[in-house]
Amino acid sequence: MLRSGLPRGRGSVMEYLCRFEQFSDFGDFTQELQGWETTFVQLSVGQLKIDHGCFDAGDVILHRTRFGLGSACRSTRRTDWPSLAIDLSPKRWCGIDVPVGTVRLIVPGREMHVVSHDPWDTLFISIHRDTLARWAPGVADALDADLTPDHYLLPSDPTAVDALIGWTQALLSARPAIDDADEAKEWAGALRQRLKQHLLAVLGSEPPTRRISSLHRVARYDAALAALEAIHRAGPRKVTVASLARELGITNRAIEYAFRSVIGVGPSQYMLAERLNRARHDLRGGWRSKSSVTTIAFQYEFENLSRFTSQYTRLFGERPSDTLRAAKNALG
């Protein structure tokens, strides 16, 4: 099942079905993610470079995403497209430390939080619900269950995981150039069947196991979710730990524990990083509204412009004026 309306002028048909792209901004990258509502917050210092490879077979889409900076990701999968994520770098997912090789089930409509303090490397297999039900009915059954996040960590075969990773790397590196649509369809069908074989080998025959969640971990995860939602609602307003604690009816220490358990950094560090990331997003689009660095800094309640510039430069490796100038120059 291939997507109709293949674009013209973008190289071969097969290059569209199996493609590789690079991004220097989380906003540009997330716009390319069909079916996801995703927000990234850069947490570690440096300039961003995202490598994204994709194989699209219609009802199954394979992605590999890599970048070299620590970040926090908040995402929700929309529609009838669950995903299987295979972590190729260690992460903290919904407050749970997951090692390399972990297989996670991403359920549509459920908000998930992932943090990586190492270079980010993840393999995603987005698969239509009906296809998943045919291929792995035991996994598909978990989609409608109201489970805690640890129940979506799937048992897997490490040898099969390594084989899938190697096959994916070879596929996305080769990107065969095929101009004929019928030949490309035949290729895509064969690759889709091979992907199915790899996926079934990874999952094996065992259904997802039912684990007993730690009450403390669940409570901290719920507190972190509530705090993140309050921060999101605040928009450009500066939020403090004390105001969060008052709004949620818990102590400052509970907020601190929740953030360090789920996000891996303290709440003050996270909130500063998020405001800086939002300011960066607006600076990159500042040419549209003719906004200045000062206007955007004050919009996000950075009252000291010199300190804002210092904090921004330390996180992103360039001054805010450099970001705004580059956006204007790119426009020409």
Score class of each variant (00 low, 15 high):
Q42E: 15
F67Q: 07
L43E: 01
L105H: 12
G101S: 01
F23E: 10
D87H: 14
L62R: 01
F67M: 11
E32R: 11
S83C: 13
L17P: 03
L84N: 15
T30L: 11
R104Q: 11
T79Q: 05
V60D: 07
S89M: 01
M14L: 12
L33E: 07
F55N: 09
G53H: 02
Q34F: 14
R66W: 00
H52T: 05
T79Y: 12
V45S: 15
S24G: 11
P82Q: 02
Q34P: 09
W36L: 09
G35S: 04
Q22W: 05
A57Y: 07
T79R: 15
R19K: 10
W93L: 01
R77K: 14
R78M: 15
D87M: 12
I86E: 01
S75M: 09
S75D: 07
F26S: 08
L84F: 12
W81M: 07
F67A: 04
V45E: 15
S89A: 13
G27W: 02
F20R: 15
L33R: 09
Q22I: 05
P90E: 08
L88G: 13
V45C: 12
G27K: 14
G35W: 07
G35C: 13
G70W: 11
T38V: 12
V103N: 03
R78F: 15
A85D: 13
G9V: 14
V45Y: 09
V60E: 15
W36N: 05
T65A: 12
G46V: 02
A57K: 00
G53E: 07
E21Y: 04
R74S: 13
Q31N: 02
E32V: 10
P99G: 10
P82E: 05
L105C: 10
H52L: 03
E15D: 03
G35F: 04
Y16G: 04
G68R: 07
C54F: 05
V45N: 12
V103H: 00
P90L: 03
I96D: 00
V98T: 11
R64H: 04
G27A: 15
L62Y: 06
W36Y: 10
V98E: 00
C94A: 07
V100W: 08
E37Q: 07
T39G: 08
S75V: 12
E32L: 11
E32P: 09
E15A: 14
S83N: 08
C18A: 00
V45L: 06
T65M: 13
R78K: 11
I96C: 04
D59Y: 05
Q47H: 12
D51G: 04
R104M: 14
S24P: 02
G53D: 01
R10P: 15
T38P: 09
L62S: 05
L17F: 13
L43V: 04
T79V: 07
T30D: 02
Q42A: 08
G101H: 06
K91I: 01
V103L: 05
V100F: 13
F55A: 13
P99I: 00
T30C: 08
L48Y: 10
I50R: 06
T38N: 06
V60S: 14
T65R: 01
F26G: 03
L48C: 12
L105E: 03
S71T: 13
Q34V: 03
D59K: 01
C73M: 06
A57R: 10
F23Q: 08
V98N: 01
G58A: 00
T79C: 10
C73K: 08
G11V: 02
C73E: 07
V98L: 03
R104K: 11
D59N: 08
W36H: 03
